[in-house]
Computed example of a mutant assay.
Amino acid sequence: MKEIELKLQGKIKRLTNKTFKFDERVKDGWFSAVYFLKTREIVQKYRPNYIVTMQFFQKDHAVLCGTDEVIALVQTFADDPSGLEIYSLKDGDQIEPFETVLTITGPYQNFGYLEGLIDGILARRTSVATNVYNVVKAAGISGTQKPIIFMGDRDDHFTQQAGDGYAAYVGGSTAQATHAMNEWWGRKGMGTMPHALIQLFDGDIIAACKAYQETFPEDELSALIDYNNDVITDALRVAREFGEDLKTVRLDTSRTMIDQYFLRNQHLLGTFDPRGVNPELIFALRKTLDDEGFNHVKILVTGGFDEKRILEFEKKKAPVDMYGVGRSLLKINIGFTGDNVLLNGQPQAKAGRRYRPNPRLEKVELQ
């Protein structure tokens, strides 16, 4: 693996604070579509002095991410990168459909084989950033912005965690589940207890919480309360045991299960879906905690949350304090396209495509 520290000059402000790590086989074209490699050979033979402008765009309203990474890629693997002319928007910029986000001008054979890699970086990072942005927006419609914890570690290959965590940060999530997810922007991962910890204490949530508190006394105590599928009973048990030391309770009830609270109060059933974590369960939990004086305890919900589900909770004003979201944030639903649109400074592009100047682009100087 090769490391390159991104050094940008001019107006572009770098958001990441770490070096990028690239596989050295990029230089050999290992990750490039073969037709780009063949085109490079042909151009070197027949059109070595021709200058092209390649522009990149996508087709949605989105939050752009990946530009720093792309610029580092070009700086690392393009031939004579200082001879290229690059204009770019910044990570975190909100972009319109078909808006040009990046242009690269220079001899095609010096950088053209990187086109697919650039598309892929922008597609993944922008998709994650936009997904997170939309979820964060949904979690704030009630007037109070609820934090979003990025919990995508179990939903994708672990090698993607650093870039995905950075994209989530760009989208508005400032709490991540692993240290790797924080690598590019300078924090450590956060988290408390999984179901496995309670299982190892024979299902005794009190014993598990005591062990956690004794081992990590500097941490705020957050109890996972759905292990026994009786969140209100277990929340009260933990709150009565730990009092002011208990800061948060987390619900992660499976969508295939109905909490014991509803089985004890079947007169409540019939007007809503009682499975999993649902607003009615949150209302009951909040009321029970408040009635016993545990107003300080916050409620964190996890398990299958996405933008639509969070909107449902927020529209009903469910008393959730934080959302933990994973899989839905990693859907790659934004694709980028790179097109050669100028040849030696003159319009030349396939039918339906044209050079789209964008005054928002800022010049990047590579070293």
Results as ranks from 00 to 15, higher is better:
169 Y>C: 01
144 T>W: 11
176 Q>W: 02
113 Y>I: 09
168 A>P: 01
136 V>C: 07
184 W>T: 06
186 G>I: 06
134 N>Q: 15
112 G>I: 05
183 E>K: 14
134 N>E: 12
120 G>W: 03
190 M>V: 13
177 A>G: 10
165 G>K: 03
191 G>H: 04
182 N>I: 01
192 T>L: 11
116 G>K: 06
168 A>D: 03
190 M>W: 08
149 I>V: 14
97 P>Y: 07
145 Q>W: 12
148 I>T: 04
195 H>T: 00
110 N>R: 06
122 L>V: 05
195 H>G: 09
174 T>A: 11
161 Q>S: 12
144 T>K: 15
122 L>C: 06
148 I>K: 01
176 Q>F: 02
131 N>L: 06
158 F>K: 14
159 T>A: 13
116 G>H: 08
112 G>A: 10
189 G>V: 02
113 Y>D: 09
123 A>M: 07
156 D>T: 15
101 V>H: 01
190 M>S: 09
144 T>M: 15
179 H>S: 07
124 R>F: 09
184 W>I: 07
100 T>I: 05
130 T>M: 05
121 I>M: 09
192 T>A: 13
191 G>Y: 02
177 A>I: 05
153 D>F: 10
114 L>N: 04
169 Y>W: 11
158 F>W: 13
121 I>F: 06
151 M>F: 10
182 N>Q: 13
150 F>R: 03
153 D>E: 15
125 R>Y: 10
115 E>K: 14
164 D>Y: 04
135 V>M: 11
123 A>D: 07
107 P>R: 14
113 Y>H: 14
177 A>K: 12
156 D>H: 12
150 F>Q: 03
103 T>R: 05
